[in-house]
Simulated assay, not measured.
Amino acid sequence: MKKAYPFGMFVAVAEFPDVTVTVDAASYAPKGEITSAEQWPPIGSPIEGVVVDHVEHNHQVKLRVE
């Protein structure tokens, strides 16, 4: 995880540095449970997610963490 905000987080993907990767707060639900921002992993921690959307014109990818 690169940055966290109340609405979600930005994630870096080393292989695609020009792509903006986001996880909105409602899409971060490890083990099927939505968590509050206080329970999210610390900045710099790796996360795994599933691509649920992408926007070609602005190089944005949205993830869901299950």
Rank of each mutant, 00 (worst) to 15 (best):
V13M: 11
A37G: 15
F7R: 15
T35A: 13
V11A: 02
S27D: 14
E33L: 07
P41A: 03
G32M: 08
V51R: 14
A25R: 15
G32S: 08
Q60Y: 03
D24Y: 06
T20C: 05
H54V: 09
M9D: 09
F7T: 10
V51N: 10
V23S: 00
V21G: 00
E38R: 12
V51P: 10
E48H: 05
W40D: 02
W40K: 05
E38N: 12
T35F: 07
D53N: 14
I47Q: 04
Y5W: 14
V11Y: 01
T20L: 13
W40M: 03
A37R: 11
V65Y: 02
K31G: 09
H54Y: 09
P17M: 04
H54G: 06
K3E: 10
F10C: 02
G49A: 06
A25F: 05
E48V: 05
A4N: 11
E38I: 05
Q39N: 11
I43D: 05
T20R: 13
E15L: 08
K3R: 15
W40F: 05
G8Y: 01
H54D: 12
S27Q: 14
F10W: 09
Q39D: 14
A29K: 14
T20W: 04
A29I: 08
R64T: 08
Q39L: 08
V13P: 04
R64W: 04
N58L: 04
V23H: 00
V50I: 12
E56H: 12
K3Q: 14
T22N: 07
